[in-house]
């Protein structure tokens, strides 16, 4: 079936199976920044934005996003660079597998909640797991990024 949506503000139409998930569709069209970790709606590595809201793309059927706006890390390059800087400064960046998902969820957090408390930050990022660094360094990096402006 043909599904048309906006990928980083560019209209695209892909022929997909009715049971195909968005992470698979995007990766098969060269968007390899979308990582698939657990593929069980848990780890958050595949996070991207659909209509500005972070979702796990391994669990969203491509057929369901007709006409919607999908944002991957390629669509937020300037903000992703700032987030990456703070991740590097705090040593939060190790194997890098979770980074793209983190960048998108942190970007969404900044847009959704003004001046979030630490509890709100943790609640927002709890669905993005990092197996390298223990999450404290991510929390420090996110706080530094949110203080930037």
């Amino acid at each position: 079936m043909l599904v048309t949506f906006y990928l980083n503000n560019t209209q695209v139409s892909y022929d997909v199976r009715p049971d195909e998930y968005l992470s698979h569709t995007l990766r098969s069209h060269g968007i390899k920044s979308v990582k698939v970790g657990c593929n069980e709606s848990t780890c958050g590595s595949c996070t991207l934005l659909v209509d500005d809201k972070p979702v796990m793309s391994c669990s969203v059927l491509t057929a369901s996003i007709e006409g919607k706006h999908v944002t991957t890390v390629e669509g937020i390059q300037e903000e992703a660079a700032k987030i990456a800087y703070h991740f590097a400064e705090e040593g939060a960046d190790q194997c890098g597998f979770c980074n793209a998902g983190y960048a998108l969820v942190v970007y969404a957090l900044k847009r959704e909640i003004k001046n979030p408390t630490e509890e709100q930050i943790i609640d927002y990022i709890v669905g993005n797991l990092c197996r390298c660094s223990g999450l404290q360094s991510q929390l420090n990096a996110i706080k530094a990024y949110l203080k930037e402006e």
Binding site: T47, M56, S59, D123, V126
Partner: peptide, 12 residues
């Protein structure tokens, strides 16, 4: 409801 998984799950 907020106790269910993470935000990227609850948005689905």
């Amino acid at each position: 409801v907020r106790e269910v998984m993470g935000v990227n799950f609850r948005n689905i």
